[in-house]
Design a protein around this nucleic acid. Sequence first.
DNA 1: TTAGGGTTACAG
DNA 2: CTGTAACCCTAA
Length: 299
Amino acid sequence: MGAPKQKWTAEEEAALKAGVLKHGTGKWRNILSDPEFSSVLRSRSNVDLKDKWRNINATAIWGSRQKAKLALKRNQLSAKHVENSVAVPASEEVVDAKPFTVSSGTPGAISPRKPFSRLDNIILEAITGLKEPGGSDRASIAVYIEEKYAAPLNLKKLLATKLKLLVANGTLIKIKHKYRIAPRSTNTEARRSPLPLLEGRLKDSSKPEKKVIRILTRTQVDADLSKMRSLTAEEAAAAAARAVAEAEVAIAEAAQAAKEAEAAEAEAEAAKIFAKAAEKALKSRMQDTWVFLDFFKLR
DNA sequence: TTAGGGTTACAG
DNA sequence: CTGTAACCCTAA
C-alpha cells in the first residue's frame, strides 16, 4: 500500500556515516537532532538509522555471504541434520570473535559492540594460545595469527603498531621483545592510570577521553581493510578512500584529544598518552592505505 | 531510545 | 527460490 520501500540514497548514507563519525555509534537520536544532518535525514527515524547502520556494517564485513547468527539460525531452522563435516575451517570464522573484551569482562563497558577491532582480541588470543612462559615475540604472534586466521596483507605492520598501542595502554607488557598479557593491571590501584579509558563509560563530564573512545570506534576501518582483499579494484579504491577520509578525521580528533588532555589535569595523563599512541597508529595505517591506493594507480 | 530478533518487499 | 535491504516488534 503506501510504503513502497524507501531506499537509502547515497546522500542519506553519507550523512549517516558522517553522523556516526561525529557522534559515535548508537547516538541515533543525537545524529537526527544535529542540524547538519537533520535536513538530509528528515524522513528517517532513529530506528531507521540504526537499521541502516546495521546493514552497512553487516555487508561490509561479510560481503554477501554468511550472516553469523542469522545464517546459523536459518541453518538450524531449515535443516536440523546438518552434517557438520563441511566448512568450519578457521579462516572466515573470525566472524564470531569471542566475547573477549580488551579491557575487562564487563559487557557493555565499551560503548559500541560491533565495530570493534578484532585484531586486539586476536593478539591476546594468540599470546594466550601460544602459552609461552615468558611471553611471545612478534614473529610468533604473527605466525599464529596467519595460521589461524586469514592474514591481512599488511599484518606485520598492523601487528607492530597494534602491539605498541597495547603496550602503551597497559593491556600488554613487553619484556625483552616478548609480549605478555598485563596481570590484571598491577594491584589495586589499577584503574588509576593503566586503562581507564577502555573501561570508562563517562557520560557528560568526560573531557578528552570521550573522543579517545570514539577513535577506537573507528577501528572499523580494520574491517574495511580486510574486506578489500576480496574486492575489485574499483570497490577497493572506494573503500580505501573512505578509510582515508575517516582516518584523517580520526587523526584530527586524536590530536585534539591529546591537546585537551594536556590542558586538563592529572588524571588526563593516561588519556594523553593513549591519544598520542592512537594518532600515531592511525597515521601509519593511513600510510598503508595510501600505498594500497597507489598500487591501483588511483587516488 | 536503543539493540536485536523477526518480517516483508524487492532484485537477481 | 535465495539473498539483501528496508521495515516492524519488543525487551531492557
